[in-house]
Design a protein around this nucleic acid. Structure first.
Length: 1027
RNA sequence: GCGCCCUUAGCUCAGUGGUAGAGCGUCACAUUGACAUUGUGAAGGCCGCAGGCUCGAUCCCUGCAGGGCGCACCA
């Protein structure tokens, strides 16, 4: 007797067993298929990469949908005999993951990431990601996906990280990546930049203020940005303002006093809008930035990176903009500058779609991918862009789709894609996040890759030599001449800001210098300095208050030369860490502690342990420590973890404060200022800063000569650290005093080959990380081993098929095309099948906040994964959203039962003897069988045309309403009849059709079909049967 | 502003230059059946509106209305 079938199909039991059997068979791996002879070794390859789910997420209905589509294609192609590879993996999703862990950290421990420090925070993220990974991978399996798990990848694993670094280097060398200060989307909440495509726009009703700006009326929804506005812009053809000429200046009363405004004519202005006149805020608005760039106007920061107003806002400085706005409006009203308010205005507000805050445009030094710069194509199989030709990334992205080499399904998305390319700007790829691929750029610590001449500006970039806070200094000793290459940095933070070439332009007057200075600045002095500078350059001219002043300006130069002390992927000889000892009671009580031999207290011991934890895996060879007790104890703790030897060196001791040891710091600072704040000042019986710098720097240099190839940890004091850092960075003594070595972090120094510019050997890596889409852009080929020339890469790239959701067409699909195109000269995939969004029955997206979530796993447990897959596929046309209801799943659960029962009926009638005579098939028998084969073919044709919904429906109908309802009924009398031969014949016909039907249903409902198939052919596996 | 799409049965949606389709729902009847998850049948549609091309339009074209979405340099 054949195996009997249970009266009911029990998916809960069978689906798990069957998946385990598939995995054990190894047939998910095309190499095994070839090895075991189920696939021809020369068979045409068919490949795809799973859009990697976020490692910290859980499987939602959208994944289930996406995975079902791909699995249908994969199973079909595998059964068709192709060497089919579907690569699984997960995504580290930098910003989303970091935000999630930050959220948990705050909720559970009331801590921020800064409390933990970068290292410790990243360890937490990694742990969380690892746990989470196991969950989601299990969930992906649950849906029946036939992924080759032996090739599983992670966007943040070693191989993928290597690929990302290689990608950056290659694009940098090709001139496609540059560093430059440009306007960015800044998220003050997550404290990072965000790319244009990650912005979500919201429309909000907001009051629209009409303000009197001298003779003009300007309209704005954001009065808080207007403090620095000194350019008033109008259309050149606007007759109303004909009497104002470009470059004219006029004095007028503004928020915090009198200002001089300059007339600018630009045709970006819409004469119809508002009053046809506007003032500009180039630092905080992309349009205004564009105008300022075109006309070489000043740019000034009004809002800081926390979202608070800067000193330029006068009495409003330090206030968050949302709070300041009504106050500012009140002041404007009081001064009579508020003309009217339009309450019904709809304002478009940018928000960070990754759960961040309100976007505030800022100018910031970032890394960019230039989409408009032609580059030389290397090896290329791209149509229309042969090897050696030149193209821009925009052209590349456009051409491969236009030529049909990459086909976007459904086609209408190609139009959207082109439209997007037309409006595309350079892609900002750096993020100020901790979790993610670190940008593989190292800066020489001494010269920072900066140009020879350095320029500091208190308020970030103010393109003139003339700086608001330190202008006198600037004008006295700048020593620049036109054409000099200079670096600009924020003198408060030391942040490198931009590179440029000095030029000169005339656009202000001596008088203006007075007028625009708030009282507390040394206006008179500044003016005198300016005049002096002017005289130096134009000795023959008279100076009057209305004399135009030629100020130095620079033009941004957005590329950086490698020789400028910037290294991409350098070979790091060794890593050195400067660690400050932990807390002592003196530190805690704020008393002076120099050579006193105080031990660590409990907190201090814990801090040392935490650092030691961070040293695991860093292969520390040597510990060099001050011989004072607090450092000694710290070093010993490090030694326990790392096993490294300790060298004690009294030259690395803290400053000897002599007579001042043990007194409160406040007293020291107040009564011994010379010792506290001057370089050479010396307390009685103690040392000066100069003395300490001398001995500790010499010691450091000595060790650098001895141990440049070893990984070294310095367990030392705050004093030597800041002095050594000061020497390394060539700081002034004032800068040294401003720097406090962090207790929560180790200062990491990387030793590499000497800098071409200044011979320094010590580098530090860019602290920023990549936009997560920069790494996901490499997904189709980094998963196959690129940049190595692997067999997988040669065989399976480009991918045959890719099935992401249309919502990531720009974020991901376009970026894969870009990166694959410029790095490999290949398309990433032949087909981009874009699926829609699964929505609830009211058409809303599923979301946690709405509480309308449907858990696909719960559904799979209730109805079976097969039913869930069918419910998702049927009725989902390419690119269309799918409204989804549980009742649909129930319907397909019924279908699974139908398959089981119909098969069970056929099996019940199986002849006892395999050799039982069936007689000849009748014409009708043959017609039924032929029809079934025709249907199978039709189903296959639909799949090949990406009409999965039609394919599924066709297979469904055939089985239920033709095979079960008609054919089985037709043959029932024969089966029940007296003729043994006819019985056998009837069985043979039904079995033939059934097995074919199972094949055509298998891609859609793999579990139940596999379960049934083996009842008939116990030695076979339907998954690899021939279609 | 530029662009893409949708409007078909009560609901959710397919679809085609020639009599209009599915699932769910509704109604009637049948059912100790391989099927408690079944079967047979029925009702239900000026295929958004108005023009045009065509022998023929739900489908192609134009316009309009309503809805959705993408992009943008909407002060």
């Amino acid at each position: 007797m054949p195996d009997a079938m249970e009266p009911r199909y029990d998916h809960t039991k069978l689906e798990g067993e069957i998946y385990a059997r598939w995995e054990k068979s190894g047939f998910f791996n095309p190499d095994v298929c070839v090895e075991k002879g189920v696939t021809d070794k020369d068979a045409e390859p068919f490949s795809l990469s799973l859009p990697p789910p976020n490692v910290t997420g859980t499987l939602h209905i959208g994944h289930a949908f996406e995975d079902a589509i791909q699995d249908i294609m994969v199973r079909y192609q595998r059964m068709r005999g192709r060497r089919t590879l579907w690569v699984p993996g997960t995504d580290h999703a930098a910003i989303a993951t970091q935000a999630k862990v930050e959220g948990m950290l705050y909720k559970e421990e009331k801590k921020t990431k800064y409390d933990l420090g970068r290292e410790e925070f990243l360890r937490r993220v990694e742990n969380f990601a690892q746990e989470s990974h196991d969950t989601i991978v299990k969930q992906v399996r649950r849906m029946g996906t036939s992924l080759d798990w032996s090739r599983e990848a992670y966007t943040f694993d070693e191989k993928r990280s290597f690929a990302v670094r290689a990608a950056f280097e290659k694009m940098y060398d090709a001139g496609l990546i540059y560093r430059g200060a440009r306007i960015v989307n800044w998220d003050p909440k997550l404290k990072t930049t965000v790319s244009d495509d990650e912005i979500a726009w919201k429309e909000e009703p907001a009051p629209f203020y009409y303000l009197k700006y001298g003779p003009f009326v300007i309209a704005t929804a954001r009065p808080e940005t207007k403090f620095g506005d000194k350019y008033v812009v109008m259309h050149p053809n606007d007759k109303r303002y004909k009497k104002y000429k470009h470059g004219d200046t006029l004095k007028l009363e503004w928020i915090n006093g009198s200002v001089t405004a300059t007339i600018i004519k630009d045709d970006v202005i819409d004469m119809e809008f508002g009053t046809g006149v506007m003032t500009i805020t180039p630092w905080h608005d992309a349009t205004d930035f564009g105008i300022a760039e075109r006309h070489k106007l000043d740019k000034e920061q009004i809002i800081d990176f926390d979202g608070k107003l800067l000193p330029i806002a006068g009495e409003f400085a330090g206030i968050y903009i949302t709070k300041a706005r009504p106050l500012i409006v009140e002041k404007l009203r009081a001064k009579g500058l508020l003309e009217k308010v339009d309450e019904k205005y709809l304002h478009r507000v940018a928000t960070n779609s990754r759960g961040g805050g309100l976007i505030e445009p800022q100018i910031k030094m970032q890394w960019w991918v230039d989409v408009n710069k032609p580059f030389a194509m290397g090896e290329s199989s791209l149509k229309g862009i042969p090897k050696g030709s030149r193209a821009t990334l925009k052209e590349l992205m456009r051409k491969v789709v236009k030529s049909g080499q990459v086909k976007i399904v459904p086609e209408r998305f190609a139009k959207i894609y082109f439209h997007w390319i037309n409006n595309l700007h350079d892609w900002c790829i750096s993020r100020q996040l901790w979790y993610g691929h670190r940008i593989p750029v190292w800066y020489c610590l001494a010269c920072g890759g900066k140009a020879d001449k350095k320029m500091g500006f208190a308020g970030d970039v103010v393109p003139q030599v003339f700086d608001r806070k330190t202008r006198t200094y600037r004008l006295r000793d700048h020593g620049f001449t036109v054409g000099d290459r200079v670096a600009f940095e924020n003198s408060a933070t030391g942040e490198l800001f931009g590179y440029g070439t000095m030029t000169e332009i005339a656009k202000t007057t001596v008088a203006e210098i007075d007028l625009k200075d708030p009282k507390h600045w040394k206006t008179y002095e500044a003016r005198e300095q300016l005049i002096a500078a002017f005289k130096r350059h134009y000795p023959e001219k008279d100076i009057r208050s209305d004399t135009p002043v030629w100020l130095y300006t620079y033009v941004f130069d957005q590329t950086i030369k490698k020789s400028d002390g910037i290294r991409v992927n350098p070979e790091i000889k060794s890593r050195w860490f400067l660690v400050r000892h932990g807390e002592t009671d003196s530190v805690k009580n704020n008393t002076v502690d120099g050579w006193q031999d105080t031990p660590l207290n409990e907190t201090g011991l814990a801090q040392a342990e935490k650092h030691a934890e961070g040293m695991r895996g860093k292969k520390i060879d040597l510990i060099i420590s001050s011989d004072l007790k607090r450092c000694k104890e710290t070093a010993e703790i490090f030694a326990r973890t790392t096993g490294a030897k300790i060298i004690y060196d009294p030259d690395l001791r803290e400053r000897n404060w002599g007579a001042l040891e043990g007194i409160p710091k406040s007293e020291r600072d107040l009564h011994h200022q010379d010792a506290s704040y001057s370089y050479h000042g010396k307390p009685e019986r103690g040392e000066s800063f100069a003395d300490v710098e001398d001995r500790s720097w010499n010691a450091f240099q000595k060790y650098l000569k001895l141990y440049a190839d070893k990984n070294v940890v310095f367990s030392i004091h705050g004093g030597p650290i800041r002095l050594i850092m000061g020497k390394l960075r060539k700081w002034s003594f004032e800068e040294v005093l401003r720097y406090y070595p962090p207790v929560s972090e180790m200062v990491a120094l990387d030793i590499s080959a000497p800098c071409a510019q200044c011979k320094g050997e010590i580098y530090e890596q860019d602290p920023d990380t990549f936009d997560t889409w920069f790494s996901s852009g490499t997904w189709t080929f980094s998963t196959l081993g690129w940049p190595e020339k692997t067999k997988d890469l040669a065989t399976y790239h480009p991918n045959s098929f890719m099935a992401p959701g249309y919502e990531i067409l720009f974020l991901w699909v376009a970026r894969m095309i870009l990166m694959s195109g410029c790095l490999l000269g290949q398309i990433p995939f032949k087909i981009a099948y874009l699926h829609g969004i699964v929505r609830d029955i009211e058409g809303r997206k599923f979301s946690k906040s709405l509480g309308n979530g449907i858990d696909p796993l719960e559904l799979a447990n209730t109805y079976g994964a097969d039913a869930v897959r069918m419910a998702l596929v049927v009725g989902a046309a390419p690119g269309n959203d799918l409204k989804f209801a549980e009742s649909k799943v129930a319907g397909y659960r019924n279908f699974a039962t139908k398959i089981w029962n119909a098969s069970r009926f056929v099996l019940m009638n199986k002849p006892a003897s395999a050799s039982a005579k069936a007689g000849n098939l009748t014409a009708k028998d043959k017609a039924h069988i032929a029809h079934a084969q025709k249907m199978k073919k039709a189903v296959g044709a639909h799949i090949e045309k990406f009409e999965f919904h039609l394919a599924a429906e066709k297979a469904y109908h055939y089985f239920w309403h033709t095979f079960a309802d008609k054919i089985i009924e037709e043959y029932k009398p024969l089966l029940k009849g007296d003729s043994g031969v006819a019985q056998v014949r009837a069985y043979r016909v039904l079995e033939t059709i059934l097995l074919d039907s199972l094949k055509m249903l298998h891609p859609f409902m793999p579990f139940v079909t596999e379960a049934v198939y083996e009842k008939f052919l116990p030695k076979k596996m339907l998954m690899v049967e021939e279609w």
